[in-house]
Design a protein around this nucleic acid. Structure first.
Length: 713
RNA sequence: GCGCGGUUAGCUCAGUUGGUAGAGCAUCCCCUUGACGUGGGGAGGGUCGCAGGUUCGAGUCCUGCACCGCGCACCA
């Protein structure tokens, strides 16, 4: 018996070398797997952002996928798990800009485009290597030879190609309309990057001037200098006589010209039933202006400051709001003030309050019929993929959420006013517009300044990682991918967009099954965040308890789909379990020295019954894993190994092994060896390091446990 | 307003097609140089959020309600 079993199991001593062994074996790459593997199984790793280091949520996600991948590999499938990282354009640039501002007191314009992109790239590179090291520490059996980064050459080609093809199909267009402007990040963001916060707001009812006939109500007084109309409901008897009339006023130094219009959008029950229309700073008002052909003066600039002449000029919106309120009071124009609850839109990345502004931006049309897809719109394709069951989304709740969200989907704004990312492949010369993978011939062409929303490249991930737009073997073999397990947070941002892109570019679903998982929260159910300082570094946990214990601690928390409350105590418990397996091995090896393994062992009746019990376990663990009841499989294994095998069977074995009945002893020795090796196989997807380390020490074993055959038929 | 999820032991959560309520941790008691003290044995603890209904039988299915979390919409 190897001497190492005389000491407790020490994960720190073995994990690095075991991972190295796996990596050097080449088995992470399905092309090298032994045996004749026909069926393929593929997953792409949701690429972590290169904004820093991995957190416990990544560790959870890595574990779930690695369990599935290891299981499928042992089942004899051609198993591919592709690693990658995401440039996360806006998040990464924002982080680096913040650092530069802090250390050098310079902003992006001081540095210039080229220098800033260089600095961000440098940061991303450093961050990338930290992240990849962390992923390895978790034991993730990823095919590093296929590693992809959203900004590498192949992925860049995929992004450019995708843009061009959608542009040519008329699905990508440039349009002037209200966007979500992030004044801190100095960029537009999509609807899905907004976080709504409920706050108290002061709803002020007032008149523009003494002789204006209608009172209106607003929480955003500062926008009222940009009003060009007052809209009322067509059936509202109170205001019928005014519809069509026009009025002039000077509103806090700003001359305004107001037309009274009738529009169905107006809710007669809200406020005074009359709506001050600010076309340039409200989505609904923009639409009203469309219908009534109203002018749309912009009165708030990109820095969230007032841009009209007069006393308000250059004031921040909140200041201007106060000034106008004071002015209204001085002129006795306020009718009522009341506090109401209001949802304030804030930017996910910067926390800034979103300022709706009119901007010329690039969009993906989700409601436009796609010729090559039988006239279905992108939205319909997205809905159909899930509704038809072609993508299996077994969690009813998330399925409804997805479909509900699709219903409300609007065109996707894909241009961002930052510099780090995929620059939009469009060039302008006067009125000419040119779109292609590379710059056009000739002089005077100016490339579009904007870059693409980071989710544009992420959305191509299932096939850009497989070599698309080339028609590679990988693409044929591994797409659609088999499985996807994202956090519910990114159902909309990512999952739905992968479906959109894959449907359009490949006429395929991106994955066959989606299992959405929850968030890892702290012991009290709070999100991990910097401000709470409750973060947990997976590497610390690995250092203390080993990667296997961390893996078990994460997946045993809860069923997939609900949030996991992370409890270090539990991780500690699984470290004990790892040691238990270690000592079981010690016991079995001590008591089976010199016993040759037999192909078909002959058990006596007692041991045959024990073996039947073990086979039941195999069946259950197999079906649980097959059906993604990961925690169930792990829990059953834990129980069998500890309570049945160690506590009961080993205890009962002692007298047999020491007794005089040679036949009974021999039968039991075989059973112990077989149950141990069988248990190691079953445990391997969950606790790969420990089981592989033990496996390497068993007599008469060769090769790696990671490619052993799963014990079930 | 619409939608989704949750509510089971002190805590964190399981409970697959309806068939006598489970685990881990925590608590308490006991054992002990035996593979492992990173151990072993045992105990206490739950009218399964509330109210109805279906059923021979409901934690599980149906209806309504309450509270907690989340998403969408509104946000004048």
């Amino acid at each position: 018996m190897p001497e190492k079993f005389l000491k407790p199991y020490n994960p720190q001593e073995v994990e690095a070398s075991i991972y190295k062994k796996w990596e050097e074996s080449g088995y992470f790459n399905p092309d090298n797997l032994p045996g004749d593997r026909k069926e393929s199984f593929s997953i792409v790793l949701p690429p972590p952002n290169v904004t820093g280091t991995l957190h416990i949520g990544h560790a959870y996600e890595d574990t779930l996928q690695d369990i599935v991948v290891r299981y499928q590999r042992m089942r004899g499938k051609k198993t591919l798990w592709i690693p990658g990282t995401d440039s996360a354009a806006i998040a990464t640039q924002a982080k680096v800009e913040k650092d530069i501002l802090k250390k050098e007191n310079k902003n992006r314009y001081d540095l210039g485009r080229e220098e800033l992109v260089r600095r961000v790239t440098e940061f991303a590179k450093a961050s990338e290597s930290i992240i990849l090291n962390q992923v390895r520490k978790m034991g993730a059996s990823l095919d590093w030879s296929r590693y992809a980064y959203t900004l590498d050459d192949k992925r860049n080609l995929a992004v450019m190609t995708a843009f061009k093809r959608m542009y040519d199909a008329g699905l990508i267009y440039r349009g002037h309309r209200i966007v979500n402007w992030d004044p801190k990040g100095q960029t537009t963001i999509s609807d899905d990057e907004i976080i709504y916060e409920e706050r108290d707001a002061n709803l002020v009812t007032f008149k523009y001037s003494k002789d204006f006939p209608i009172a209106i109500a607003t929480t955003r007084l500062e926008t009222k200098v940009g009003d060009t109309a007052v809209a009322v409901h067509p059936d509202d008897e109170r205001y019928k006589e005014f519809v069509g009339k026009e009025y002039d006023a000077v509103f806090c130094d700003v001359p305004i010209h107001i037309k009274i219009v009738a529009d169905h959008e107006v809710d007669p029950a809200f406020g005074t039933g009359a709506l001050g229309v600010t076309p340039a700073h409200s989505m609904t008002d923009w639409d009203i202006a469309d219908r009534h052909n109203l002018p749309r003066p912009q009165v708030i600039n990109e820095y969230a400051k007032i841009s009209t002449p007069g006393r308000l000029n250059g004031k921040k919106v909140l200041e201007a709001r106060e000034m106008i309120l004071t002015w209204l009071k001085e002129n006795d124009l306020v009718i009522k003030e009341e506090t109401i609850k209001q949802n304030v839109s804030t930017a996910e990345r910067t926390g800034a309050i979103i300022e709706p502004l009119p901007k010329l931006q690039w969009w993906i049309a989700v409601n436009k019929p796609v010729e090559t897809r039988g006239g279905k719109t992108l939205k319909e394709l997205m809905r159909h993929a899930v509704e038809s069951g072609e993508i299996d989304m077994p969690q009813e709740g998330f399925r409804s959420t997805y479909l509900h969200w699709i219903e409300n989907l609007r065109d996707w704004c894909i241009s961002r006013q930052i510099w780090f990312g995929h620059r939009i492949p469009v060039w302008y010369r006067g009125e000419e517009v040119y779109c292609d993978l590379t710059a056009p011939e000739g002089d005077g062409w100016q490339q579009e300044e904007d870059v693409l929303d980071t989710w544009f490249s992420s959305a191509l991930w299932t096939f850009s990682t497989l070599g698309w737009p080339e028609e590679t073997n990988d693409l044929k073999t591994y797409h659609p991918t088999s499985f996807m397990s994202p956090a519910y947070e990114i159902l909309q941002l990512w999952v739905s967009r992968m479906i959109l892109m894959s449907e359009f570019h490949l006429d395929q679903v991106p994955f066959k099954k989606v299992l959405i998982h929850g968030l890892v929260r702290d012991k009290s159910g709070r999100k991990f965040s910097k401000s709470l300082n409750n973060g947990i570094d997976p590497l610390d946990m690995i250092e203390k308890y080993g990667a296997d214990a961390l893996r078990m601690g994460l997946i045993m928390g809860a069923a997939i789909g609900s949030d996991v409350k992370f409890d270090e105590q539990r991780v500690k418990g699984y470290k004990l379990f790892a040691n238990k397996v270690w000592n079981i091995t010690r016991f079995v090896l001590e008591n089976t020295e010199g016993v040759a393994r037999e192909e078909t062992p002959t058990y006596n009746a007692t041991d045959a019954a024990l073996w039947a019990e073990f086979e039941d376990l195999v069946t259950e663990v197999t079906s649980d894993t097959e059906e993604y009841r990961i925690y169930m499989a792990a829990e059953k294994l834990y129980h069998y190994v500890w309570d049945r095998f160690a506590s009961a069977i080993l205890e009962e074995s002692k007298p047999i092994l020491k007794g005089d009945d040679a036949a009974a002893k021999r039968s039991r020795q075989h059973f112990l060896l077989d149950a141990l090796t069988g248990s190691l196989k079953l445990l391997h997807p969950f606790m790969p390091f420990l089981t592989e380390e033990v496996w390497q020490s068993l007599p008469e074993r060769s090769g790696l446990l990671m490619v052993e055959e799963w014990p079930a038929k």
